[in-house]
């Protein structure tokens, strides 16, 4: 008996609408974040993550409205990421009903922002998102670097050291995305996930590359992830959350059912 490993569906939201299509059930409006979140809640998701990909500054307020609407009806944890740059952004999202806020690029530019946010609001609600890509081995050991801007800009930071540093500054959780695997459906980068999970004392969410239920199991058993995040395999109805949990349970992983 132990803490359950979590399954977290991730929804991309642009100007208040879920994008990239969610087709896992018959909901009247697959772009409505509240309807989609309600369905995932009913389906047994352990948390929901919203990634705000709104480009325009004016559109950014819409995510706050989305969080307010979802938090009024869905009583599981909500994480929101994307464009979180200032303390005021964190406060707005938490007040709207987000349980956790994910900080990505701003953490790279201003690491002290993570410390300040954790000090102000508590580590439990501060997630640092780390986008990592494999780089040249050092002494035969694999290495990953932190990238920003959707994997286009290398920071020169070592991903494992960076995650450890972020946890030290007060991040309560690391959302770790392999930019090599993201969108490939080849599975998580388990070596990366394991390296980060073992280097940091905080929970690690594995992300990027899920194409099958076995990948979820690998992320936990090989990658030592505390939670697994996936988008397309759930959104397109290939697998339900219940099927994923049944499969994980068959492989000896504790899940909430």
């Amino acid at each position: 008996m132990a803490l359950a490993k979590r399954i977290i569906p991730c929804l991309d939201v642009d100007a208040g609408r879920v994008v990239k299509g969610v087709r896992f059930v018959d909901i009247r409006d697959a772009g409505d974040p509240v309807a989609v979140a309600r369905e995932y809640d009913r389906a047994g998701a352990d948390e929901i993550t919203f990634l705000d990909i709104t480009a325009s500054h004016q559109g950014r307020e819409t995510i706050v409205e989305v969080v307010e609407a979802v938090a009024s009806e869905v009583f599981i944890p909500l994480t929101v990421g994307g464009g979180v740059r200032e303390i005021a952004d964190v406060r707005r999202l938490l007040n709207a009903g987000a349980d956790k806020v994910a900080i990505n690029t701003a953490a790279v530019h201003h690491p002290e922002f993570v410390a300040e946010a954790a000090e102000r609001f508590g580590s439990q609600c501060i997630v640092v998102a780390v986008d990592a890509k494999r780089v040249a081995d050092v002494d035969g050991e694999p290495r990953w670097a932190v990238f920003t801007h959707g994997g286009r800009r290398e920071t020169g930071l070592d991903a494992v050291d960076w995650a450890r540093h972020m946890a030290g500054l007060g991040a309560g959780e690391i959302l770790l995305t392999s930019m090599d695997r993201d969108g490939t459906r080849e599975g998580f980068d388990c070596a990366l996930t394991r390296a980060v999970s073992e280097a940091t004392g905080v929970p690690v969410i594995a992300s990027g590359g899920v194409g099958s239920l076995q990948h979820l199991v690998d992320g936990v058993l090989e990658g030592r992830a505390d939670a697994v995040l996936a988008a397309s395999i759930f959104h397109f109805g290939e697998y339900s959350i219940a099927e994923a949990k049944a499969y994980m349970a068959e492989h000896g992983i504790e899940v909430r059912r």
Binding site: M1, A2, L3, A4, K5, R6, D46, S123, Q124, G172, E173, G201, V202, P203, R224, D226, A227, R256
Partner: peptide, 12 residues
């Protein structure tokens, strides 16, 4: 030693 802090998630 493998247990993370915070204790975060669903437990019985």
């Amino acid at each position: 030693t493998g247990l993370k802090v915070p204790h975060m998630g669903w437990n019985r």
